[in-house]
Design a protein around this nucleic acid. Structure first.
Length: 118
DNA sequence: CCAATGACCAAAA
DNA sequence: GTTTTGGCCATTG
């Protein structure tokens, strides 16, 4: 299996700072697989405790929390995010406009954050 | 190899 | 607004 793919995904997930969130598609893009957003989710499903992966900061493009989440429920995820300072516009929807990462205001753009292939 | 699945995304009806 | 369709790419049986 392409462990490299997973490692890249995890590497990007770890880059997401506390208080911010990121979408599967963005993670995939940064990881070097612009269209492999689904695999990011798949990678998340494979993640487990002890990996130090802030998977709770990864949400879908709408900012809504995943139903089949692993932590124990969306409620837990929301608690984690709120504890980090993430604002929710709904019980299960994040204010993406404020917490989306990477920011588009940085010089050079988010492309600078992407890992070079190879 | 083929078929089906998936914490997705975007566009169309 | 919801529901369908097409696409992407890796995993699993």
């Amino acid at each position: 299996m392409d462990e490299e793919f997973f490692e890249r995904v995890y590497a990007q997930v770890r880059r997401v700072p506390a208080g911010s969130v990121c979408t599967y598609g963005t993670i995939a893009e940064l990881a070097g697989y612009p269209k492999a957003s689904r695999e990011v989710g798949l990678a998340m499903s494979r993640v487990q405790r002890g990996w130090n992966l802030p998977c709770h900061r990864i949400v879908n493009a709408k900012g809504t929390l995943a139903p089949t989440y692993a932590f124990g429920g969306q409620r837990v995820q929301r608690q984690l995010l709120e504890d980090e300072g993430v604002a929710f516009v709904d019980d299960e929807t994040i204010d993406m406009a404020r917490h989306r990462w990477p920011p588009c205001d940085e010089p050079g753009g988010p492309e600078q954050l992407a890992l070079p292939l190879g």
